[in-house]
Nucleic acid binder design. Sequence first.
DNA 1: GACGCCATTCAAAGCGCTTTGGGAAAGCGA
DNA 2: TCGCTTTCCCAAAGCGCTTTGAATGGCGTC
Lengths: 354, 354
Amino acid sequence: MNLKDLASLLGLSPTTVSRALNGYPEVSEQTRLRVFEAAAQHGYVPDPRARSLATGRAKAVGLVIPVDSRHERVNPVFGDFVAGASDTLWARGYDIMLTLTSEANEANSYRMLAARGRVDGLVIQAPLIHDWRIGVLRELGLPYVVHGRFSDEDQTYSWVDMDNRRAFRRATEHLLNLGHTRIALLNGIRGMDFAERRADGFLQALRARGLEPPPEYLCNSRMTETYGYDAATSLLRSEMPPSALLTSSVIVAMGARRAIETQGLRMGRDVSVITHDDVLTYLLNDGTPPVFTAIRSPVRDAAELAIENLLTLIEDPSAGPIQTLLEAELVPGGSSGPAPTNPPHGRTRDAYQI
Amino acid sequence: MNLKDLASLLGLSPTTVSRALNGYPEVSEQTRLRVFEAAAQHGYVPDPRARSLATGRAKAVGLVIPVDSRHERVNPVFGDFVAGASDTLWARGYDIMLTLTSEANEANSYRMLAARGRVDGLVIQAPLIHDWRIGVLRELGLPYVVHGRFSDEDQTYSWVDMDNRRAFRRATEHLLNLGHTRIALLNGIRGMDFAERRADGFLQALRARGLEPPPEYLCNSRMTETYGYDAATSLLRSEMPPSALLTSSVIVAMGARRAIETQGLRMGRDVSVITHDDVLTYLLNDGTPPVFTAIRSPVRDAAELAIENLLTLIEDPSAGPIQTLLEAELVPGGSSGPAPTNPPHGRTRDAYQI
DNA sequence: GACGCCATTCAAAGCGCTTTGGGAAAGCGA
DNA sequence: TCGCTTTCCCAAAGCGCTTTGAATGGCGTC
């Protein structure tokens, strides 16, 4: 059943039927009603391809998510991002097209290029420090919004990001105020933009108090439970065990908690943990109080804003770059407390100094 | 730059250029080369909409993922499923279109219907026991493959699923063989097809040995860490604490582990845990031996097969329903061991009987 | 009665591609 | 030279929709 069939069925021209369905005023209310009824009755749905070809609008946005080619790991934030984006998109009649790109190889430029015509705009996820995608984006000439930021990019472009630097600075200050001086950072992998900003914030806060962490206090890895466990274990067993850990995701914090408890210590008393929390639905840190003290910044909120901004750009490309900085909320939980006066393991050591 | 432009640029007709690019034999090798060069040079990429309209093939598949409307939870398996599907799809030139559907409301039928024309086939995720989507699917007339199964569906349709019943029967038998008789199941929510099958397998194995678990040994909930912790805690504190737990996902197992350790018990010695493991990249249960004894069935494998089957069906709709049953692998890990002779907590109790 | 005006409706072109059905040129055997 | 096949290329139709520009008819007005 296509437009022509429906039209001849109604004894109308395709023009009129199209107009009736699309809400143009040049059609009588009575006719419009007839058309709608017939459409519903025969289950007529306009072909999106044809419509898109005729209007030039694809009514779809593309989501470009990077896949870590070595580990075949897909960005864990992805699922919730989609969930956050989906409501708004659906409400505005947009579909979502997925493009997975692994690290730089030529096919990927093509893969992104192929999006042209199929989508009206793009959302870019998990930008790297030096992200190859930016070149393709510029060439494409499609509106796009980056979830996160390209660090080495000086030109203005649209992004939605949380203030990673500030969040980690505040979390670190929070721990400092609790008396902690030996604070380690279990960060994400190097090369991810957000990881660098977090490290920045962490260091800023420490240095403001005249502290400089030893290099082994700065860990970088893919964010897994095992990583959290291993890193925390080796830190806690080291010569100079930290009294607090700052982790980059709830899953890493879980690993850290396991390490702490395995060593017979108690989280929140012997060792404090503050984690960043993207509020992923499969890893909720809820409860009252939540298990982990956290700097919380829901991915869903970011997703909604990113989509909102993207749609604005699509509808008015001259709307100029839209940049949205989100604040993280410091949520007190059970995992942090005052620095213990006697360091664990019976060892006594001074705080590290400059 | 469109086909016509490129053609006139080359002094050829659009027909010839199209044929050259699509590998038809009626064009000289020399011309083909010229065309390819010009296309590359001018960055010409055929418009997928126009192509799709002309050929009738969308060169895209739809992924329909349910969103739990109450909890706004997106299926955690989703990310890895996409990752598994993406390689094959990309290799065959297909794009992925996402459709999120929350629980039954009329808009969703439409949402799926709108897919017509935009995709050549669908993959359905996380089927429920009584899934409203099946009606829409039949009406649509598009090829589809279900990841999982519709339990109440007697008509033949295509699916890829792991043998949940057998996997959980084997895991239970494994525990029984280790001497455990008090085994609790921390299952997913009721209404999900897989959860019912798992409970089935679990009960089959127990009943074959003349055991009948008390009702409180059968837990159902959304699979979160907190759930694992709470359920395990209350079970271990109960009058009749289990000596083994069977969990439906690694994240639940993590919660269970925390509960076990919080009570001063050791996992694998005092309480055994076997978990199902979908091998999600953000929740890896690796290591040698792995932390958890697991019945492992990678979502990625399922995804690859589902896509493979779907593409077969798309290319030959008469290929009939393709049904693929995957076996889970029982991977020994550190979380299971012989049943303790003295139950924990100093309590002595007989195994539950029929 | 002629005119203009509004409210409706329609015919036809066009979006960018594929594909059918030729058709010209070249090659070949007789 | 002719007729035939083969090779290579092309014009034009069509996919299902939107949209421009024009047509139709009813109505009030002078």
